[in-house]
């Protein structure tokens, strides 16, 4: 299981590297789809079918919007003249990456080995879940019954984002 997951995350890393360094913008957007759909396969291997369904449809909508934006513009290639500001930012990135890897090494010592989660917080949720909520899908029971506030917050975020998009993309005012 860990080997299969490592291979798929390796493909995602190769796709991400190509998406960042591609010359053509449309190719970069489609390579972003590699990362998204590889994530769907990872979710299926990790026994999370809810997440796989949501991720595949959301990735499709994101790709549609991005391709609509890119095709509408000039579809130029990315600029490639390295100068001093480019070298300074690349050097800063390498320092930041090394610092973050050091901190990750320190923090990963306290993670359990992969595949042995202790269910410390989810134990009381799972035990009486079918009597307390009455639903067969545990994730839906957790979302709407035990943690209903988070779902309410998410609905609010969606409405606010739609409000923002309508306000930004408006040309004619009220007559």
């Amino acid at each position: 299981m860990e080997l299969a997951l490592s291979v798929i995350v390796g493909f995602m890393i190769i796709g991400a590297l190509y998406a960042i360094h591609a010359k053509d913008i449309l190719s970069a957007v489609i390579a972003c789809g590699i990362v998204g759909y590889g994530l769907v396969i990872c979710f299926l291997l990790l026994k999370a079918p809810d997440l796989a369904i949501v991720q595949i449809v959301v990735e499709t909508i994101t790709l549609i919007i991005m391709v609509a934006v890119v095709l509408d513009s000039s579809r130029e290639e990315a600029f490639s003249k390295p100068d001093t500001r480019g070298y300074i930012s690349a050097g800063l990135t390498i320092i930041l990456v090394l610092a973050l890897l050091y901190f990750f090494r320190m923090a990963a010592g306290s993670l359990d080995t992969f595949g042995t989660s202790t269910l410390r917080m989810a134990g009381p949720y799972i035990e009486g879940a079918t009597e307390k909520t009455g639903s067969a899908n545990l994730v839906t029971g957790v979302i709407f019954d035990f943690r209903g506030y988070d779902t309410l917050g998410e609905a609010t975020v969606l409405v606010t984002a739609v409000l923002g998009v309508i306000t930004i993309l408006r040309i004619k005012g009220k007559k």
Binding site: A48, D50, V54, Q55, Y125, V139, D150
Partner: peptide, 14 residues
């Protein structure tokens, strides 16, 4: 499998 991180990620994807 632990359902609690799955509930968090479901909200985060949308």
């Amino acid at each position: 499998v632990d359902p609690l991180p799955q509930a968090l990620v479901l909200t985060a994807i949308v």
